[in-house]
Amino acid sequence: MARTLAPAPMGCSNRRVTKDANPARAADGGGEDGRGTPIGRRVVLGMLAGGAAGVAAAPFLQRAYDNTLGAAAQKDPTGLSGLLPAGGGFRYYSVTGSVPHKDERSYRLTVDGLVRHRASYRLADLRALPQTRLVRDVQCVTGWRVPKTPFQGVRLSALLDAAGVRPQAKAVRFTCFDGAYSESLTLEQARRDDVLVALRMQDKPLGHDHGGPVRLYVAPMYFYKSAKWLSKITVTDHVEPGYWEQLGYDVDAWVGRSNGRDDVPTT
């Protein structure tokens, strides 16, 4: 094709180039265009140095950010600052494509496994039981932390006592109505005072995005232990690793003492 064979005469530009470039050399490295200071390489190296410096200075920078813009973001009425890194507040994580909505009518929490009395609770049944309110920090294993968040609900130990745990039981397994998520605790962990079957968060009924109407709340552990959309509690004879735990997370997920992290404990 003719058009690819005919380089257009670009001579009109040569006068300007030859002022500061040596016209004798036209190597294969881009011709006269390819000479001058290697600024490009310096920019790349500068980015690498800046990245390394950023990693090193991050703790300091993060603290400065939290104390200024981060603090302001907590009061941001538009919510736009939530899109900034570490903009504060909760982040929505779901492991499935879509999660069904359950309400007063359709929600059931079953307790089964190594128990004397299997049980099925409706929302109203759970609300009728003695409620416990805890206010602790929430710490996610990915780094975000939400300070002083109230959770309210029924102590898990109360549900276990009501079901009558059999002597050979060692652990409790939790499954969720998203169809995929699961979690486990040892029986000893499950009986702690700060482990709730939560119905309310931030003094409001638990919304769907926060795992409502009912989620697990394990105050002393990273937040992935606090399974959302809780639908079944099964007493078992061994700890079965949960969803993220099969993907490498620690089963005993104490905040500050697991997953290679050293966050301040939440309890």
């Binding site: 002022k19 390819g34 290697p38 600024i39 490009g40």
Partner: peptide
């Protein structure tokens, strides 16, 4: 490769 050289080098006109 020739275009990478062109991108890397900055002349007075740049």
């Amino acid at each position: 490769r020739a275009d990478l050289t062109r991108l890397n080098r900055f002349g007075r006109h740049d």
